[in-house]
Write a protein that binds this DNA or RNA. Structure first.
Lengths: 191, 191
DNA sequence: GCCACCATGTAAACAGTTACATGATTAG
DNA sequence: CTAATCATGTAACTGTTTACATGGTGGC
């Protein structure tokens, strides 16, 4: 056996962002927040060590940049070797989806708590995604405005549309679930 | 500061399953596969150590059971203390959803590869969830049959309905995405 | 004066996956 | 005879989160 390849997907996410433009670790966090964070989040505790490793492997290069007043930035740019590595990963087979919904875990055991409590839990979920969907739709409107001028954003739009579909499904499920629980609550002789 | 509570959610998942019926580690894996695995998966490497820890804390009790021929089973049952702990967790605030979609990560950087390759990736995704949705709908039909007799399964149904909504959203997104990429591919002067 | 934001990083703890070890039974 | 399933567990590794450490700038 040669080596069980170090398949750090978050490192590829960073590599992909750097392929578009040079960024500091701090900038990367902000970019993630406004784009891939929807389906692939990462904190500073992952980003800084990942950048260091990528630099060690020669996939990115970091340059310290003095900026009067503000703390110095370390701007990273992708290397030719990094681009090759990124392209190699992009055509490799894709891992299955990983999801973790604590709300469903609690709801699955919902018979142990008050129906009212479960209804509240779903209402909160519903409220949160109502707001998130609005934010997403703002992104989408902006993207559609620039799309005819540059098709660069087509793949970004694809992922935003994914979010839109999913969030709507969340809201539809929540409405349905609330109705099911309310009907249950009104059945006489029921706890 | 007293102690940053050990909030192992997977342990609560196990506790919840044991609250319904005594199970061995192996049985737990199977139960997860057919119920909460949809939104909270766990392998043997998590289950066995978790059971040990739960037993150390007195939240579950394990009893070895001889079974002629087959390997001995260790059946765990929840204790009163465990039930209390489970109920405590159920009313605590719920953590946000965690998702990881490698397919979207790759698609986000999709301009770096052939449009055809991206179309293939989405088609595979689509095919997988077409099958998974059918399986889920089988579960749902069975659940609806027993529901009028016992409302026990209402919360199970709630989580299955969640899966149904989400998987349908996946398929709708996939169809839309495929159309977007095919339209793009036919635009002249486009790569 | 205080809080938010800019900016980088390390260390410890926790969570999760994969591989290994062992071995019997049953269905094809 | 071979593969799948039954059954439990450990060890090593990878990935992620959270806390800590440090310190300047700008707005209210």
């Amino acid at each position: 056996m040669v080596q069980i390849a170090n398949e750090n997907k978050t490192a590829y996410a960073i590599l992909g962002l750097l392929n578009h433009e040079p960024l500091s670790g701090y900038d990367i966090r902000k970019r993630i927040d406004g784009s891939i964070g929807l389906f692939w989040d990462a904190g500073f505790g992952q980003i800084y060590p990942a950048l260091k490793k990528l630099a060690d492997k020669g996939l990115v290069e970091g340059k310290a940049e003095k900026s009067g007043g503000r703390p110095d930035k370390k701007i990273y740019r992708i290397t030719e070797k990094g681009r090759k590595e990124l392209e190699k990963w992009l055509v490799e087979p894709t891992a299955k989806e990983h999801v973790r919904y604590e709300i469903l875990l609690k709801l699955f055991f919902g018979s142990l708590v008050d129906t009212e409590r479960n209804i509240e839990t779903i209402k909160e979920f519903r409220a949160r995604y109502t707001g998130l969907l609005e934010t997403l739709e703002g992104y989408e409107r902006n993207l559609r405005l620039v799309l005819p001028k540059s098709q660069d954003h087509l793949y970004y739009l694809l992922t935003v549309r994914f979010g839109s579909h999913i969030y709507r499904a969340y809201l539809n499920w929540a409405d349905e679930a609330l109705e099911m629980l309310r009907n249950k609550a009104t059945v006489p002789g029921d706890n």
